[in-house]
Design a protein around this nucleic acid. Structure first.
Length: 305
DNA sequence: TATTTTACCTGAGGGC
DNA sequence: TGCCCTCAGGTAAAAT
């Protein structure tokens, strides 16, 4: 499932191919891929065709390609992509046959690399594309990784900066946690608190920081929060270096290749297997209609009194 | 207001 | 071989 490292791998793959390219044609094969778009498929095709792509930017799990009217203009809108669970952005030869689960195909022409197809494929159709206006960031800092412009798409304004963003505010993060009564894992998945972390990396970071997922966020000491934040950054960077986590064909880079981080998981998906730290079995519990994996020995249940 | 739950969606894989 | 069931989970709307 694409979380921050997986989306960043996709962004890095897209950036050289799309920057300064012109959209020559757009085909929407399935309008369910446009649930974030305000209008229909025909309007999407018309609005995107002829635009110049200014780069590839990311905040948390949101990806966007700023759109210029022509080469001299500043970008005023962006093509947003959210991959959700099974979305993929693939770079293909213009004559490549349709992908399995292909929803949208964007044909581009790059001044140096020639013609390419950007294909959005998505088995479970939770992901989507949209054209969205760019608005200023409240703090005046760059909107995300991969852009120097202090703007974000309007649909991304409520998404917090991610922990790899140079403008991430550690103090704000500590203050938000101190005000939350919910369990820490639930808070880590709240993209308005910090973005980019999903079920896999929440379990991994909590295991590394030796914190039980149900620990009330506000009960964590400053030292514990700092340790957790450091472990979140460490696990995201390590996963990024290994090309992301792939369990099956659900997550691949722009060339259709899987990542290797699944081999480095310590807790997620390892139900019944020994904890790499203490050797006792990892347990799985139900959590928000999904799963939490942790070591009950290393990550003690919080004591209430 | 803050927090929790639900709807959305498809295919892989296991049991029989 | 095929049918039925469970599971995967990010986001935003709805419910509490």
């Amino acid at each position: 499932m694409p979380e921050l490292p997986e989306v960043e791998v996709v962004r890095l793959g897209l950036e050289p191919a799309v920057t300064s390219a012109t959209v020559t044609a757009v085909h929407v094969g399935d309008e369910r891929a446009l649930t974030r778009h305000a209008f229909g498929g025909a309007e999407f095709e018309r609005a995107l065709t002829g635009r110049v792509l200014a780069g590839a930017a990311r905040r948390g799990k949101f990806l966007w390609l700023p759109l210029r009217r022509d080469r001299a203009d500043a970008a005023d809108e962006a093509l947003i992509a959210h991959l959700a669970m099974s979305g993929q952005l693939l770079l293909r030869h213009p004559s490549a046959p349709p992908e399995r689960h292909e929803r949208v195909r964007i044909s581009i022409e790059h001044p140096e690399h020639g013609e390419l197809a950007v294909v959005f494929a998505d088995q479970r159709t939770f992901g989507s594309l949209a054209i969205d206006p760019l608005v200023p960031t409240p703090d005046g800092a760059a909107g995300g990784l991969g852009t120097a412009e202090p703007t974000v798409p309007s649909q991304v304004t409520h998404i917090a900066r991610d922990p790899l963003d140079p403008a991430f505010d550690d103090r704000r993060f500590r203050a938000l946690l101190a005000a939350k009564s919910s369990g820490i894992k639930r808070v880590l998945l709240d993209q308005t608190v910090l973005s980019g972390v999903g079920n896999i990396y929440a379990d991994e970071a909590l295991w590394a920081a030796r914190i039980h997922p149900e620990t009330p966020a506000r009960s964590l000491s400053t030292r514990a929060v700092n340790r957790l934040l450091a472990e979140i950054r460490a696990v995201l960077l390590k996963a990024l270096a290994e090309g992301g986590t792939s369990f099956d064909a659900q997550y691949v880079n722009v060339n259709g290749q899987a990542g290797y981080f699944a081999h480095s998981l310590n807790a997620y998906g390892r139900t019944g297997q020994p904890c790499p730290r203490c050797g006792r079995p990892i347990v799985r519990v139900e959590f928000m209609n999904r799963s939490s994996h942790f070591c009950p020995h290393c990550q003690r249940v919080p004591r209430s009194h």
